[in-house]
Design a protein around this nucleic acid. Structure first.
Lengths: 215, 215
DNA sequence: TGTTTTTTGTTGCATATGCAACACCGAGGA
DNA sequence: TCCTCGGTGTTGCATATGCAACAAAAAACA
C-alpha cells in the first residue's frame, strides 16, 4: 500500500537527496531560513523538480515525517507478536527500548527536526503520532488481557490527558538526549524515561504499582 | 577547454556520485574486488548509465585522477604568480605546503586510492604527474632566474632520476600521513618532507646548500 | 573437465529531470 | 511612491537516465 515501494530509481534518488538536504540545512541554518532554492541546490536537484514532488518545504517535512513514522511502526511491529500480557512492565520496557533504538538510528533526523531550529510542525505531528501509538498499544493490551475492570481514580479526567503528558515528556527526553554530549545508550534512556513516567502514569491509569526491580 | 564545465546538472550529479561510490568502495573492500554493479548500486545509478559515462572501473579511476590533478594545479597556480627567484628555499617551502594542503583537502580520495587496497595505476599516474610538476617548476625557475651555469656533480646522471626519487618519497610520505592516527598539519608534513629531501636533492642538483634556519 | 553463476557490455523504449523563461508576490530602499 | 530584488510556482521542450532483456565473457564450483 505504501506509495514508496518499488518506484523508479530516479524518484527514490531525488526523494532521498531532497530529504537529506533538508535535514542538513535545518541543522545548519534553521528551518525558517531555508528556501526551496537552497534545498534544491544542496541536493543537486533542479528547483523545478522539487515542485514535481512536493508542494513546498512544509510538504517536504511532512513527507519526511511520514517516512520516519512508517519506519517507526515497522521497527515496533515484531515486538507486538510475542507479548505476554502477564508481564506488563517487562514488555513495556522492551517496547520503549525499541522506540529509543529507533530514535538512535535516525538521530540526525530527529536532532534536526526537534531541535530549537527545527520544525514545530514536525514536533507537534510527532507528539500526535506517539499518542496514537500509546493508545493503540493500550487497546491491544486490554483486548489480550480481557476487559477486566479498571479502577478509575478520577472518572472526570479525560482519557487522553496523561497520554498527552507522556508525549511531551518523551519529546523533551529525546531532545535532551540527542543534544547531550555524552551519547547515552538507548537502554539507559529507556530506564530513565521509564523511572520518571512510571508511577505517575500507571497510578493515574489505576494500575497497581509493581515493585521497582530489574536493573 | 575542460570538458567538465557547465554541463547538465544530471551529468555532474552522476559523475559525482559514481566517483564518491568508487572512493567509498575502495576503502571498504579494495579496488580489485569492486564490480561495476557495486558502484552503480552504491551511487544509486543504473548500471547502464555507468557505461554511458565510463568504459569500466579503470576508466572511472582515470577520470577521478584527472579531476584531482586538475584541482591540484588549480590550487598551485596562484603561488606561481608572486615568486621571488631570490628566495629559493622559502618559495619552495610555500609550494610544497600548498601541495600538502591540497592533499589534506582531498584526504579521503588519496587515502583510498594510494592505500594498500587502492589502485596501483592511480599511484603510478600520480607519481608521473608529480614529476611533471616538479620539472615544470624547475624550468620556470631557471627562466626567471636567468640561465646561470649550474655545477653538475655527475654529468652522467639522467636529469629525471632525482625527480623520480622525490616522487616516491612523496607518495610514501602521503600514505603514511593519511593513515596515521595523529593527523598532523600540512605544515608539519611540509617541514618533515622537506628536511628529508632537502640536502640530497639540492646537492645532487648542484645548488649550494643554504643554512638550515627557519622554524 | 563441464556446469552454473556472476559480471560485463549493449540495446530500444519509457520517463524523470534539467533548463530557460515566465508571471507573481512581498519586502525593503531610493 | 516607485522600484528593484529575491523567492515562489509553473510551463514546453530537450535530454539524461531507468528499465528490462539480451549475448558473451569470466569466475566460481563440483
Amino acid at each position: 500500500m505504501s506509495h514508496e515501494e518499488q518506484t523508479d530509481l530516479r524518484i527514490r534518488r531525488t526523494h532521498h537527496f531532497l530529504q537529506e538536504a533538508m535535514i542538513e540545512l535545518v541543522t545548519e541554518k534553521g528551518f525558517d531560513a531555508i528556501t526551496v532554492g537552497d534545498i534544491a541546490e544542496r541536493a543537486m536537484i533542479n528547483r523545478a523538480t522539487f515542485y514535481r514532488h512536493y508542494q513546498d518545504k512544509y510538504d517536504l517535512v511532512a513527507m519526511i515525517f511520514e517516512e520516519a513514522a512508517n519506519h517507526l511502526v515497522e521497527d515496533m511491529k515484531p515486538l507486538h507478536k510475542d507479548i505476554d500480557p502477564g508481564e506488563k512492565e517487562e514488555n513495556l520496557l522492551e517496547i520503549w527500548n525499541q522506540f529509543f533504538e529507533h530514535i538512535a538510528e535516525h538521530a540526525r533526523l530527529y536532532r534536526a527536526m526537534l531541535g530549537k531550529n527545527g520544525s514545530p510542525w514536525f514536533a507537534a505531528r510527532m507528539r500526535e503520532h506517539i499518542m496514537k501509538l500509546i493508545l493503540e498499544n493500550e487497546r491491544r493490551w486490554e483486548q489480550q488481557a480481557g476487559p477486566r475492570p479498571r479502577p478509575r481514580i478520577d472518572p472526570a479526567m479525560p482519557n487522553t490527558l496523561p497520554v498527552m503528558q507522556i508525549s511531551y515528556v518523551l519529546i523533551g527526553t529525546i531532545v535532551w538526549w540527542l543534544e547531550s554530549e555524552k551519547n547515552y545508550t538507548p537502554r539507559q534512556m529507556t530506564t530513565w524515561f521509564w523511572r520518571f513516567v512510571f508511577y505517575g502514569y500507571l497510578s493515574v491509569r489505576g494500575y497497581e504499582a509493581p515493585a521497582q526491580g530489574k536493573e
